[in-house]
Each structure stands twice: as structure tokens, then as C-alpha cells.
Design a protein around this nucleic acid. Structure first.
Lengths: 396, 396
DNA sequence: GATTGATTGTTAGTAACCTTTACTAACGAA
DNA sequence: TTCGTTAGTAAAGGTTACTAACAATCAATC
């Protein structure tokens, strides 16, 4: 690592990115053989993860935390410093016997992550973040009426603009896309964008030369909530917007589902008493109760505040009814809502929480925590950034 | 390994068991450091798994399947043969050029697994199986009115009887228990047995000197369905009996839940139109619709076959309503029912399947397969055996 | 029937990895 | 100043899996 800080933007960043793609492959996958090399990169990832989560650790601290010897940790850290992923912050200044420790940290500003959110209505949003998920730059692009291949081009253009603005080597690119996205980052189906079997991940990787990871927007949001929102190992994140989607973290891992369609709760029928007809043809889907356009229409038709409260409470109740079996079957620790605060927070949220409590076996722990996300509008891009952190550095 | 086949039952089996407990620790856990030794045991487990799943593999076949070199595989196989876990079956007799291969296999009858099912009404059942899950011996014990510490003693006694009947070293003991069981095999709560925070796994391990694994009965059943029933990587198994419970396999892994209570769907309220009052105090729990005693009572009250069909269809519909949100959120590939065939198979099952189809987004794959288990009454003990296979040998 | 090519499994040597043991450096406390 | 403690490094050793090379064995071919 020679010229850190002196590189010239996108081109070099991209080049560095491809290097890192190869070198940072990490994390032992279940079901795969373990060669010494793989073991090493797994341990490297553990060190990074520990550094990522705690601050002000020394080599000796790491040895205690990870379980490897000080010798091995020193060796691993030397590697990581050579790769510019870890830096020495200096000598720890505290009054203890013994040689003072050298404090290490992940080089949090030494690399950039580019993250995209394609889930907005007629708008693509993207950010550049550091390794902490701090947003450094923002870009957006109007894509009204843009679909199909043109939409892919638009994504690529927005991506290029962001990469150009990154002032550190780009570690990777994360994309949260609407629709159903498979393991390989292929968008199997995204009606609003006119996409069907679009290999977005491969396309963008080929065009930029950077490591790219594409996932469903709600799934990305669930990852963000887990990593930056402090959510439980068993968490359901519900995104309410034009439609209703969800992302599910079970046992600390994102659920993909048998056909990569996990989280599709918007078109599950709620209750046994009918409801409005949905665009999908069924009657009483969760979306007909909860999607923002329908909710707003119902609120505007309301006569007074009491009436409006009843509308919100009913929507929350329907959400709770729909979610309760999932809470019970998975024994979820947390249910998090993401969407317009003015509509969701308060009456609707409380109603959903109360419904879940009354319809499930509230165990000794009083059932799951039900709350709004604290990550706001950036939740998807932050999730996309987590995907890069996980995929490139093995940090969970 | 000297005296295989000549040992004298329980005592030696137990002694061998404890040996194996130490030696067979396997499988790289996420979040743990990887030492060369751990890597080795992970690779050993991969070899075993491959041998377990396919038959008639040679060392060269294993090398191709696992991805390690023939040299390394030979070394690992030599280890496994020394431990009596693998045997050479002889020379493969087929007409191919090249040196004929030596066919290997797991020593399927060289070790026994003891598995217990505590979920029956007033009855403990147990079996001895070989590594294939073939039941070699059965024992049962009436435990009418036996609860608390006496019930623990009864389990230990049944276990001792089974271990004594094993005519091969016992690899380990698996137990499927009703109630909520945590990660450490402590039964947090099992009202029917009067258990609360009973460290069953530790107690039995201490009394027998064997490796013991305790889990919830429905969870064990889900594992059995996955390993022996050929179920999907994303499967919900529902057990219908006196109560209604479930076990959930997501991404090939058993779901434990935030408070080890995953699968507790019996006391989730179904629908929005009331129902009978449940023992838990709520109205319209799934158990009030589906539990066998209630179902039978309703069938007896029916006037004719049409009426009885309606009762079964209604029960199936309620099950479908309850399960639909889980199917949607997890994108399940399969839903499997376990319980009395005469009641569940047919009308009830079909009704549940149809309800799920009509209430969820039947994707291009036509929604999850809904079927009865093929494992019958042994499903829980087989699941307990899988726990031992996984825990001791790393076979999934 | 001899030769060629393919396949299996083993032996020998090498590189990578983590560990143990032992050391130096640096500091507070007695 | 001496002692005990902690951090980090160095050297040696054992384990692991790899590459290269080889013997054994068989089918196909000349």
C-alpha cells in the first residue's frame, strides 16, 4: 500500500476495489472445505469484526476477545495494516502497570462504500459512506417513466457519479432494489421498474469493475436495523410505502426464502372478514389496509380526528393480526416499522403492538418490542452498506 | 479400535460415548476462531456428511465432491477408519479404465443412537437406532401422573434401559421434550410434566456419561423431516396432538427464536371472528380449532358425513389462515403436518393447502407444497437422532 | 500380446498457519 | 532500585493441506 490519500478518484478507486474483491474474500461458509488460507481469512474477518464493534482495542485485547494468541493476532494485524484496513491510533494513556498498549482501529475513513436505494417512487437515491455508515455524499436522480434497460443505465450512471465523488478507495457497492432479488443479485421481478430477470449485480460489476451486491430493499433495511439500529437477532422489519414489504433476520441471518421471495407479506390476506379488493386480485391483502396511498385516502375521507384515529388504529390492528403468526412461529424479539413517521408512529404503531400482544402467547418476556426504526430514510442505503461490509470484510 | 462387537453393553458404550464426545467435536461455528485443528474437524465432518448422503463413494470420489485433494481425503479417511466411523466395503466392480476404487461407507451399524420422545400423553417412548435412523429397539414407559423430579428419574431409567439394549457403542442421546427448551437443553417450561427450568440435558449427561442433546419435540420433528423426510431448506412442520406446536427450518437451519420459544403457534389467535375460549384465556387460538380433543368432540357432535367434512374443512381453513403470513414472510417451500392421519390427511390437509394458496402470493412456483409427514409416529425420535448425528458427527 | 491412456491411492517434500516458549520493552508499586 | 505486570515480538515446533511424482491396475487400442 503505497499512495494512500494521493489517488485520483474513481478510476483508481475502481481499480483498488477489484483488488479488494479478490483479497478480502472471507468468512467460512457452511458446507465448504476449510483450507488453511480460508481459515486465515476467517480469522482476519473476526479481528475486523471485533475492531468494528468495539473501539480502542489493542492487540492484546483482540487476542482475549477472539481467542487467538497475541502472536497470531499481531501477525493478522500486520496483514490488515499492510492492506490499509487497520491503523494504529497511538499509545493508550491510562495508569496501569505494564507496557502501555497500542490502540488499533479499523481505518474507518480509509475506504468508502457506495450504496443505492432504488425503492423510491420515480427516484433513485445513492450515498457514499465510510465504513461506519456515516453518509459523506448524496446523489439522486429522477427516473420518472424510466424502466427496463434505461433504468439499468440510470442506475449505472448514478453509481458512476457517486464513485467519482468518493474520496477514498471504494470497498464495494451495495444496492437495495424493489422486487424479488435472488442470491446472485439478479432482480427476478420488479414490476415498477419493468424488470424481469435483470442480472443487475453482474451488469453493474462489469461496468464499474467494483464488487457489487444487490438485494431486496426491505431485506437490506432489515440488515441496517440489525447492524446500525441495534435490533435483536430475531427481528422483523416492515416497510410501509406504496406497498408493504418486510425483511426478516432470524438467528442473526437474513432470510432469503425458498424462492428468494422472503418478506413478501403485502399480499397476504388479513383476517376473515373481507376488505377492499387489491391490485393483485385478492380481497383484504395487508396492502389494502396499510399501504400509504390507501391509508391517506381513508384519512382524507374521515370526518374528524376521532375518525382519523380509528382509521390508523384499524390499520395498526390489521398489521398486528397479520404479523402475529410470524411473531409466534419465529419467537421474534423485535418488530420494527419503517415508513412515514407522521402516519405510522403513534396510534398505528401502538395499535399494532397491542394487537400482537393480545393475539400471541406473551411469554415471560412480554412479547416482542414493537417500535419505529431510528434510521429514517437512509435505512435502505445503510443496509446496502452493511451488505458490502459483510461481503467484503466479513463484518456482521 | 480393537474389540468392536465384543463389548458388554451400557458401561462400555457409555465409556466410548464420552470418548466420542470429546473427539468428534466438529463443525465451524460462525463467530469462533478457526485453528488448524478446528479446520480439520470441519473437513472431517464434510467427509462424513458426503459419505452419509451418498453411497458407494471412493476416496477419489470424496475428493471431487468435497473439493480437497485425494491426499488430504486419504488422510482424513484414515483418521475416520481408525475411529471406526468409516469402513472399507471392498473393491468397486465396474468396467472402467484405471485402478479400481475402494468403496467406503460410514460404519452405519457400528454405532448406536438412543433417542427419546417425551411428548406423548402419559407415556415416554424411546428407541435405539443405527446411524441411518433405522430403529433397532423400542422401549416405552407409562408415566401417568408422574411429574417433576420423578419424571426426570423416569427419563433416566428409560434411557438406561435403552443404553443397555444397544449392541454398539452409543454415539449420543437425543431427547425431544414438550415445552420450551433452550439452547443448553434446559427445559424452561413444560406444564404437562411439571417442569420449570429443568436442566435435563446436563442431568442426563451427568447420569449416563454420554453426550446428550435435548430439544423441543416439534423442533426435533422438523429436523427429522428435513433429514429423513427430504423436506425443503425452508420448511414448517406442524404437530397436531393434544396441543398444536411447530418446528421451523429456515435456510436449512432450525430456528430457535429470541427466547428459545420458536414454533409456539398453538396460542396465536386465528381470524377476526371470535371462536371458542382457550385454556390460555384467549379466544380463538389455533388450538381451539385444531387440537385433537376439540376436533374429535366437534366431529362427534356432527350429524352426518357432510357435517363432519365441514368440521374438518373448517379446521384446515383455520390452520391455513394462521400459517399464511408465515408462508409469505418466510417464502416457505414446504409445509408438513404430523399427527393422526385419520383426522389430518384428506379433507383437512386439502383445505389447509387451498387456504394457503388463496391467501398468499402464489408465486411462479405455485406456493409451498403442503403434505403429511411420511415418518409417522417416529418423527420425534428420528429428529432426536438427527440432533445426535449433527452434534456428534457434524452431519446435516 | 504389448502398448497407451486413464484412474486410484500413496509417498515425499513444501508452504501456510497457529501455538508454545522465551524474550525485550515499558510501566506502577514497594 | 527491585519486583511484578502487561504489551508486543522472535524463534522453534507441530499440524494441516497442497503439489509433484509414482506404483498399481484396468480398458482400449494397435
Amino acid at each position: 500500500m503505497t499512495q494512500q490519500g494521493t489517488h485520483q478518484g474513481a478510476a483508481l478507486a475502481a481499480e483498488r476495489g477489484t483488488q479488494t474483491q479478490r483479497r478480502f474474500a472471507s468468512v467460512v461458509r457452511a458446507g465448504a472445505r476449510v483450507t488453511p488460507e480460508r481459515a486465515r481469512s476467517h480469522n482476519r474477518a473476526l479481528v475486523l469484526q471485533e475492531l468494528y464493534r468495539s473501539e480502542g482495542l489493542s492487540r492484546a485485547d483482540l487476542a482475549r476477545a477472539v481467542g487467538l494468541t497475541r502472536v497470531t493476532i499481531s501477525d493478522l494485524v500486520a496483514d490488515l495494516i499492510a492492506d490499509d484496513l487497520v491503523i494504529e491510533l497511538g499509545i493508550r494513556a491510562d495508569a496501569r502497570p505494564g507496557k502501555p498498549a497500542t490502540v488499533l482501529d479499523i481505518n474507518r475513513s480509509g475506504f468508502a462504500i457506495v450504496a443505492l436505494d432504488l425503492s423510491y417512487d420515480s427516484l433513485f437515491r445513492g450515498v457514499v459512506t465510510d465504513l461506519d455508515g456515516t453518509v459523506l455524499h448524496r446523489e439522486h436522480m429522477d427516473v420518472t417513466g424510466v424502466t427496463g434497460a434505461a433504468a439499468v443505465d440510470a442506475v449505472a450512471e448514478l453509481l458512476a457519479r457517486l464513485v467519482a465523488r468518493a474520496d477514498a478507495p471504494v470497498l464495494g457497492v451495495g444496492v437495495g432494489s424493489p422486487g424479488i432479488v435472488d442470491d446472485a443479485g439478479t432482480v427476478l421481478s420488479a414490476p415498477n421498474l419493468g424488470w424481469s430477470a435483470v442480472a443487475l449485480q453482474d451488469t453493474l460489476a462489469a461496468r464499474t469493475g467494483l464488487p457489487v451486491l444487490v438485494a431486496n430493499d426491505a431485506n437490506a433495511a432489515a440488515l441496517a436495523e440489525r447492524t446500525f439500529g441495534g435490533a435483536d437477532d430475531d427481528t422483523l422489519l416492515i416497510r410501509v410505502g406504496r406497498g408493504v414489504g418486510s425483511g426478516l433476520v432470524v438467528g442473526g441471518r437474513l432470510v432469503r426464502g425458498a424462492h428468494s421471495a422472503a418478506g413478501e407479506i403485502g399480499h397476504v390476506v388479513v383476517g376473515t372478514d373481507g376488505g377492499e379488493t387489491c391490485a393483485c386480485g385478492k380481497v383484504g391483502c395487508l396492502e389494502t389496509w396499510l399501504a400509504i396511498p390507501r391509508l391517506q385516502a381513508r384519512l382524507e375521507a374521515a370526518r374528524d380526528d376521532t375518525d382519523r384515529g380509528a382509521v390508523l388504529a384499524a390499520a395498526g390492528e390489521r398489521l398486528g393480526i397479520s404479523i402475529s403468526p410470524v411473531v409466534g412461529a419465529l419467537n421474534l424479539g423485535e418488530v420494527v416499522l419503517s415508513g412515514p413517521l407522521d402516519l405510522l408512529d403513534g396510534t398505528l404503531l401502538d395499535s399494532a403492538a397491542e394487537t400482537i400482544r393480545s393475539r400471541t402467547m406473551a411469554d415471560s418476556h412480554g412479547g416482542p418490542a414493537v417500535r419505529m426504526t431510528t434510521l429514517g430514510r437512509d435505512i435502505v442505503v445503510l443496509g446496502a452498506a452493511v451488505m458490502v461490509l459483510t461481503g467484503q470484510l466479513g463484518v456482521f
